[in-house]
């Protein structure tokens, strides 16, 4: 009586194939999730295009994000600011009409955050902007994006790398960024 390795394997064949297929499925699922449903590029309530505003119409960043060089938060423009132009510009556009609906109802637009740091992090736009950093260094080429996509990880190593490279004063002390 000979023992065939092949036969022995044969009893495990089916479960092995099933688990391999399951694993491949898992990987495909995960990849689909992070690419298609990526939180780096969420679908926004209004299909706002930075490309249209910045590249085509040459509006500087600070025109709308007025606080970026003044306060820790860059500030997202108030609905009134949008309406300041869009009362007359492109009023027929379906996306602008969405905006007009928010304005009429006096409701804020529920933008989904693309760039967010945890609550235990102290981050200030002001210091970075005043230090001469271009917005694109962290936010990527927003001026070419129709939908904003996060290009940086915003994770601590990413912050520290830059702080080290630029020799930021106390840039590696925990209490510079952790509150």
């Amino acid at each position: 009586m000979s023992i065939s390795v092949r036969d022995a394997l044969g009893t495990f064949k089916k479960p092995a194939v099933i688990s391999i297929i399951g694993l491949i499925g898992f990987i495909i699922g995960y990849v689909i999730d992070v690419t298609v449903f990526s939180d780096a590029s969420p679908v926004q309530p209004i299909n706002f295009s930075h490309r249209m505003h910045v590249s085509k119409n040459s509006i500087p960043c600070l025109h709308c994000h007025v606080y970026a060089d003044k306060t820790p938060s860059a500030g997202v423009p108030g609905v009134s600011k949008c309406m300041g132009c869009h009362k007359v510009i492109a009023t027929e556009h379906p996306e602008i009409q969405k905006l007009a609906t928010y304005w009429e109802k006096r409701e804020p637009i529920p933008w989904i955050k693309v760039h967010d740091v945890p609550d235990f992090v102290y981050f200030t736009h002001k210091r970075h902007v005043l230090a001469g950093l271009a917005c694109q260094e962290c936010h990527g080429p927003v001026e070419n994006m129709d939908r904003v996509t996060r290009v940086s990880s915003l994770k601590m190593p990413w912050c520290v790398d830059c702080h080290t490279k630029k020799q930021v004063e106390n840039g590696r002390d925990c209490w510079t960024c952790h509150k």
Binding site: P118, F120, N170, D173, C174, W175, H178
Partner: peptide, 13 residues
Amino acid sequence: HNQDGLNTQIYNR
């Protein structure tokens, strides 16, 4: 101890 002579406490760590 950080460079300002403060005894720190980093919560997330």
